[in-house]
Write a protein that binds this DNA or RNA. Structure first.
Lengths: 134, 134
DNA sequence: TGTACACCCTGTAGCAACTACAGGGTCAAG
DNA sequence: CTTGACCCTGTAGTTGCTACAGGGTGTACA
């Protein structure tokens, strides 16, 4: 199949496919006489794998590791589990960070009295207290 | 004050200060005879403002708008409030996305039976069902 | 007076993970 | 035979910095 068919079959973009090939995530396929890339089902499987892993938030580096691991069927699954667990920890940290931020921002917004900028509590919160009076 | 002093006073890096100047967030300061940047307290206030806004997760574009608004003291605070509310909505969306992701990832990890990669449920989840048998 | 060292300058390249061109070639339908 | 959809390579842009390379400056100490 051609690159456009592959891309739409895996719900990615043509440019992304070429990008994955360039960074070595997707092996270079055969070429037609017109120099078009010609993909098989193995390429589609690999690309779909990448996409699903990306959807789950894995970095391309993590995807690369997962692909390497998945190629060695006899190996223990623990390394895969480890990567997933590290990723889960990172997601938890991000959620915690964002929640803290949300709280602070909510507090700041709640202080808005809808007056002029001169009395704006939001601006005031952002400006350092010691230098507010210019 | 020199760029190093400004940077440490605002808990940023020298390169970041120069970067903010380059993209027009921080006005170019006067120069000494040796061509060193010479900053005043107004620069420190502005840089601190930028930093605090960034800490709250505002993009540089949002910071640029907030700075413009904060320069016009007579204006209504509502525009500022609006930017902050939009930002809050975005944070809420990000938290929701991450939570959904966390759930899915947790489920995937929970399915790990610690066998070989061939039976790995995590890999299986990533691989498309229709193509798992190669 | 020399020199070592911390600091400053400009400009460019790199990071993630793509996306969007520009400027061409190919192929099937009408 | 030409229109349009697709393909090719290569490069530059995105966000928000960070890290050089290759220089100049200022001060402290021997």
């Amino acid at each position: 199949m051609k690159i456009g068919e592959l891309a739409s079959a895996a719900a990615t973009k043509v440019e992304t496919v070429r990008y994955y090939e360039k960074i070595g995530l997707l092996p270079p396929p055969a070429r037609t006489s017109a120099n078009y890339r010609a993909y098989g089902n193995d390429h589609l499987a690999r690309l779909s794998f990448i996409r699903r892993a990306r959807d789950l938030g894995f970095t391309l580096e993590a995807v690369r590791e997962l692909l390497t691991l998945s190629d060695d069927k006899a190996q223990s699954c623990d390394a895969v589990d480890g990567i997933a667990r590290v990723h889960l920890t990172e997601i938890d940290r991000k959620i915690a960070d964002l929640s803290a931020l949300r709280g602070e921002l909510d507090r700041v917004i709640g202080s808005c009295r809808h007056g002029t900028v001169a009395d704006c509590k939001i601006i005031e919160t952002l400006a350092p207290r010691t230098l507010t009076a210019t």
